[in-house]
Amino acid sequence: MVGYSHYLILSAVLFTIGVFGVLLRRNLIIIFMSIELMLNSVNLSLVAISKFTQSADGQIFVFFVITVAAVEAAVGLAIIISLFRHKQTTAIDEINLMKG
């Protein structure tokens, strides 16, 4: 019988996979995609909570999270494009101009 905790555990697993991607990959775009995965795991737990506590506020929150994620993706990719124009690489180790 699938209940509340199943959805939350799935959300935790997806979040961990996202963290895995952010910490261990070198390619900027894949890091960015892992961040999106983390946002989606949070969305999933919000929708599960919204269903199991019978209030629609969780769904509204998810709506806003999706919109803000779209905004962040657009601006982030614009930054990546201008970075790439400078440095011709997407490995984050190379982006160290401000390193002390």
Binding site: T67, A70, V71, E72, A74, V75, L77, A78, I79, I81, S82
Partner: peptide, 12 residues
């Protein structure tokens, strides 16, 4: 969203 639109165009 408007800010993102303007920002995206300016940055890229």
């Amino acid at each position: 969203l408007l800010i993102a639109l303007v920002g995206g165009v300016v940055l890229a």
